[in-house]
Write a protein that binds this DNA or RNA. Structure first.
Lengths: 348, 348
DNA sequence: ATCTTGCACTCAAGCGCTTTAGCTCTCACT
DNA sequence: AGTGAGAGCTAAAGCGCTTGAGTGCAAGAT
């Protein structure tokens, strides 16, 4: 019977040192672009390393004080809302682009809730697994920034608000308030006065920001009839809330949904009630994706470049890992893509 | 100004040893349930470790011969097809459930193509980053099993076919052929004779399996008019192919889509051409998700439990990491959820 | 001719864990 | 009393890398 071929052995620096006729330290210096070796030796070592297909063992690196060359990403959302969401995969794609270029790994975990997520951070930290983390879905009264501070773990909050209290954390944020203002502005110009906002999870920071912004804008314009209803982002709740508000006396003429999934479900629900879009009610989705072009009428949507969002966040994190200062960077305000689901308000 | 509080230090086994008044080795034995310490000492050590909040450094563990306590997962699909796909997030959720229970990390990476993916495996292996990998989207003429063999990296192929040639790889598979047969059977019973299958990426193994199964079934039943068209899984191609086949003379009366996204796009396209579903043409999606209930009519779909699929795959991988033999396990055949998009064939 | 200086490089310790070999007891058995 | 066999523990090496403290040597300063 065929001998079980032993798995190939990983070459180590010692192998390189032997082949190049220098000490291990010299190899280390050479390969890390540190002074202490001549250019000639450096080249020779590099060539040998290349030839042997050497790659540094992250374990050994991590053990000798360098980082783990890995960043962490935890997703804490109820499983059923993860279903059809396009945002996260796109975000992760963008993150990866940047990380891969720097040979940083991405440790990914889904957690049940924020508490669970904190436990994951603690574990990762204690196990020496990650050098930094990307935090999504910032909340009001979020325990995570404090925890990361305590652990001394660099982090980038994706979608947070500028935060002076946590010097170790960078923030990448989108101007939800500005976007909401522009949106209301547009709807107002079309004659809409009664607007309902079908929002996302109630304790997410950006949900609250949008709700506040809507109220503020409505106040400025004297629109009395605005309302925000929080949901769990699911199609089921999107549809349910839509039915409820459309069946009420004096229904809204415009609906703003905090994600594409609810918007699509909402349109279907509205149709079921005999409301035609956009003649009877206008619909805008806060998040654009293929979904918005899969239903009739095509949905007008606020589009942001989620891939770019991810890139930006990852870039900030690498800057932080390189010892740079924490920063707050803003990504472009989402643009409204006007399709077929928005139109002039039905005359009263 | 406030002194910058230094980040907390991670406790090590040395700390435990000191506090418990024993040697480091004793601590190691105690915490790893190895013989060599009395129950009393073991308990004491455990308590101290607990109290200090100690967790083993994965780096140190990996370095001293244990694994990296991490498994890898690479996704190699064109970015734009990742958009609204519910399958992967669900799969990953299931995977995580199992891995988290065993304190295994999941290293995640998106790659451009299979070649890129192979490079990632090589890098992970050389960098000592993962103990095993989960391989998705097996292909015809797939280079990955050979590579994993060469590297001695345990792996589980998700959605593959039983494969005797790679003793280190487990396989978790669904019986696509059986599902297709059942599907065709049902459509045939409804009077459908001309069926078009809008398939996924051409070089995926399961795409080919489904195509073959359809042809075989059609042959058995004497249905001449079946056809499979491969796509990139995108809504755009799904719609385009739908239009093409429906505009041809003698159009099909039933359409089978290899994912939910294309099915939804296809229904819209059909409607645009004046075809009504299911009166003029029946539609089935191979993959169920919220999407299928977001359009009118609700789509009949083949539903499989993707979360469970992930759990099974992860379980197989952990078995492999524990030194178990490679196995081939089959997950249940997807069930057809009959909704409103399938009905009797339009009489000729 | 001696003394510094700087460069190129080597030595050895250390990161946190596992593991083998060995050491010291205690106890049972002849 | 003497021997052997565990049981319970410690010492030390090793995993692959980084790094600070040397070492040897040639060139320039005195």
């Amino acid at each position: 019977m065929p001998a079980k071929r032993p798995a190939a052995r990983r070459p180590t620096m010692k192998d390189i040192a032997r082949r190049a006729g220098v000490s291990e330290s010299a190899v280390s210096f050479a390969l890390n672009d540190r002074p202490g070796v001549s250019e000639i030796t450096r080249d020779r070592v590099r060539r040998v390393a290349e030839q042997l297909g050497w790659r540094p063992s992250t374990a050994a690196r991590a053990l000798s004080g360098e980082g783990a060359a890995t960043v962490g990403f935890v997703l804490a959302r109820p499983a059923h809302t993860l279903g059809v969401d396009s945002f996260f995969l796109q975000l992760v794609s963008g993150i990866q682009e940047v990380l891969a270029g720097r040979h940083l790994g991405l440790l990914f975990q889904v957690a049940r809730d924020v508490e669970d997520e904190c436990a994951v951070y603690r574990r990762w930290w204690a196990e020496h697994r990650v050098d930094g983390v990307l935090v999504v879905d910032p909340r009001t009264d979020d325990p995570r920034p404090d925890l990361l501070d305590e652990l001394g773990l660099p982090g980038v909050v994706i979608g947070g608000t500028p935060d002076e209290r946590h010097p170790g954390l960078s923030t990448v944020w989108a101007d939800d308030a500005g976007a909401m203002a522009a949106l209301v502005d547009g709807l107002h110009a079309l004659g809409h006065r009664r607007i309902v906002h079908i929002a996302g999870l109630p304790d997410l920071a950006h949900t609250e920001r949008r709700i506040r912004a809507l109220r503020a804008e409505a106040g400025r314009r004297g629109l009395g009839e605005v309302e925000s209803v929080t949901t769990d982002y699911s199609d089921a709740e999107g549809a349910a809330v839509t039915r409820r508000v459309l069946e009420a006396p004096d229904p809204p003429t415009a609906l703003i949904y905090d994600n594409d999934v609810m918007a699509v479900a909402g349109v279907a629900a509205a149709a079921g009630l005999g409301f035609s879009v956009p003649a009877d009610v206008s619909v805008v989705a806060w998040e654009d994706s293929a979904l918005c072009r899969m239903v009739k009428p095509w949905l007008s949507a606020l589009s942001r470049d989620s891939v770019e969002f991810g890139r930006t966040a990852a870039t900030e994190l690498t800057a932080l890992l390189d010892g740079g200062p924490a920063r707050t960077v803003r990504v472009p305000v989402p643009r409204l893509i006007e399709r077929d689901s928005t139109g002039p308000a039905r005359p009263v």
